[in-house]
Every structure is written in C-alpha cells, then in structure tokens.
Amino acid sequence: MNVKKSSKLANLDLWKEWKEHGSLEAKNQLIESYLPLVEYVSSRMSIGLPSSISKDDLISYGIMGLIDAIDKFDLDRGLQFETYASWRIRGAIQDALRQGDWVPRSVREKAKRIEEAYGVLEQQYLRSVTDEEVCEYLGITLKEFQQMLHDVSVTTVFSLEDPIKEEDSETRIATVIDDKAPNPESALHRQYLHEMLSQAIDRLTEKERTVVSLFYFEELSLSEIAEVMSLSPSRISQLHSKALLRLKGVLANSKHQLFSE
C-alpha cells in the first residue's frame, strides 16, 4: 500500500480540538490528512467496475464517507482510525453505487443464485464444492456458469459494510468490531460467525485462496496477480468472483442457521 497513513496519535491534538472543542479548522485538517486513504480505497474499489464510473466519482463518494467517519469516530473505542475510516469510505462508495443502480437487476439475480448455491451446497457437503456441482444445482452447463461469473464480476466489490443478507440490518463489520461492553449473546454470535468465515476460507480452492491473499493482503492488482499466477486477467477476475460469492453464501447461510436454532 503506497499510502502514508496518519497515526491517530500523531493527530491527537487535532482530534481533541475537533472532538472536545468543535474546531472546524481542526476537522478540515483531519480531512486533508486522511485524503490519501480515500484515494487508496477508491483505487482498489475501481477494479472491475465499468469504465462509465469514473474514479473521481468514487473519490467524491469516499470523501463523504471520510467526513462521516471523522464525525462519528470515538477516540476511546480502541480502533485505529484508518481501519474505521476505510470501512466508512467503502460503505459510502457502495451506497452511492447501489443508489445509482449501475448493475442490471438480472446481473444481481445471477449473483444471488450463485451465492445461494455455494451456501447450500457447502453446508450440505462441508467442503469446497466443484463448479460441476454448482452447475448441477443451478441446472446450467459449465459454459453458462462461466458466463454468469463473467457477468457478475463487477458486483463482487466486497465490503464489510454490506449487510450479511440484503434484508438484514446487521453488517459484516458487526462481526469484527468489539464494543467496550459487549453482551454475552452478541459476543457468542460474533464468535460463531468468525468460525464460519474461517471454515469458508479453508474451503476455497488453492487458486481462490491465492487470489484472495494476493489481492487483500499483499494488495496486488488483478492484472499483477495474473502475471504472478501466469493466468489471464479474466481468469483471475473469475477466481476472485467465485471466492467472494462462496464466502458470502456461507456467511448468509450460517447466519440463517444461527438465528433459526
């Protein structure tokens, strides 16, 4: 990551001026200090999006998320601001994209069908299911499945701000944020979801795990990953989509089981 992150401690005086005294000048300086974070998140999220969506638009949406993060950040909560702000920035960008309805309904339906297939089949077999098994469940050919993955690749901009289920208000971020005084029931739910996510990652194929690791941890672009793995960019995009849809399917199915018990 080629972004110089500002430390919360380095900006402590500004934070105190803003939080304790409501100094707008301090707030503006904080916004300016963290603008590189907006550019970084926007660049990452622009991968795979249609060319009609400009990076400048993403940055504009992201800045709104940054401002919201600065307004709501609690100095005493124990989180690094950069982590918290990244969630808010990504969430603001995705909210704007959803409101703009840039993905056709038919494509969203395809993504939901694949996600459901992974959730159901991997719960049934307790392992990573094959493309052929997913095709049988969906009643389609392997060629049709590959085309579906290509079609939905632009919808797999993964975010912890996304609801675990579309009709649900609880987000993935709720499974990783630790409040000062969590109640035992919510702590148990978070632990359960952590375990299920860990199991889901273990069920990814070797190539899918490699793509996820290089993209989210080594922070390579999809084109760079294609070079590393000696595969085409379109194949890397397909592996990325399959991995995220598999993870989302398992999370949705696991949460359904948790609250139906």
Rank of each mutant, 00 (worst) to 15 (best):
Y61F: 15
I164P: 07
Y34S: 05
A181G: 09
S128E: 02
A92N: 04
S232P: 03
S198K: 05
K112N: 01
S46T: 02
E82R: 11
R108Y: 05
I59D: 03
L193C: 06
L49H: 03
D168F: 09
E219Y: 11
R88A: 09
Q29W: 03
A200Y: 01
I47A: 02
A174H: 11
L75R: 06
E133T: 05
I31A: 15
K110C: 01
E32D: 14
D101K: 15
R246Q: 15
L121G: 06
L138P: 03
A10H: 04
D179R: 13
L35T: 14
E82V: 13
G78Q: 14
S153Q: 12
W18R: 08
S198W: 01
L30C: 09
A200V: 00
E122G: 07
L239W: 06
E224D: 08
F158A: 06
G48S: 01
I236V: 15
L79T: 12
L30M: 10
M64D: 08
L35P: 02
I53L: 13
Q99C: 00
M229Q: 08
Y118C: 08
P50D: 01
E206A: 15
M1A: 06
E82F: 11
M196Q: 15
K19G: 09
T175E: 05
Y216N: 08
Y34N: 10
E219D: 04
R77I: 10
A181M: 14
L138H: 04
S7G: 11
